[in-house]
């Protein structure tokens, strides 16, 4: 990005601190925060998942030992969180794909007071709520399967 001769000043930049409190700017900022959080969480999970499955090369005993670690209540709770994170990240991601190409945002017009930004419209908010509801349903189903017993 070409800047006109001014050195970049980081003074008073919020940095990652600005991401920690998503409640100041409404549901869109919460969705932005959750998208990032679930993305990082899933990345950590995938690294762990590759490590877990790589134990297969150590033979059946090594695989069984690794499996014992995951077949616990905490292991199942972690998997339920993985289900929730992947569901939200996917559902909200689909909404973002559409918004990033300008679909579902409304059209520019003449703003009248009080101003309601058309990009933060009901369709967008509904998309966020649908992603959250799907996440809750997927997590409940996962909990029922993993922790519900026979």
């Amino acid at each position: 990005m070409k800047m006109l001769g001014q050195k970049n000043n980081r003074d008073n930049r919020e940095g990652l601190k600005g991401w920690l409190n998503p409640l100041r700017y409404g549901w869109e900022r919460v969705s932005y925060w959750l998208q990032r959080l679930t993305g990082i969480f899933l990345l950590v999970y995938f690294v762990g998942h590759v490590f877990e499955t790589s134990s297969l090369v150590g033979g059946r005993n090594a695989w069984d030992t690794m499996l014992e670690m995951t077949q616990t209540t905490w292991g199942h709770t972690f998997l339920i969180m993985v289900i929730g994170a992947s569901t939200f990240h996917s559902a909200n991601g689909i909404r973002l794909i559409f918004t990033h190409v300008g679909i579902g945002l409304g059209k520019p017009g003449r703003p009248d007071y009080p101003y309601y930004p058309s990009s933060l419209n009901t369709r967008q908010r509904s998309g966020i709520w649908i992603a959250l509801i799907l996440t809750a349903v997927a997590m409940l189903y996962g909990a029922n399967v993993l922790l519900g017993g026979d």
């Binding site: 700017y25 409404g26 190409v101 945002l105 409304g106 703003p111 101003y115 990009s119 933060l120």
Partner: peptide, 20 residues
């Protein structure tokens, strides 16, 4: 698309819409 720019704009400019 965090949308915070459009949320705080005092003139109804909706920068997030323009960017998308």
């Amino acid at each position: 698309f965090a949308g915070s720019c459009s949320k705080v704009c005092p003139k109804g400019v909706d920068p997030a819409l323009g960017i998308q």
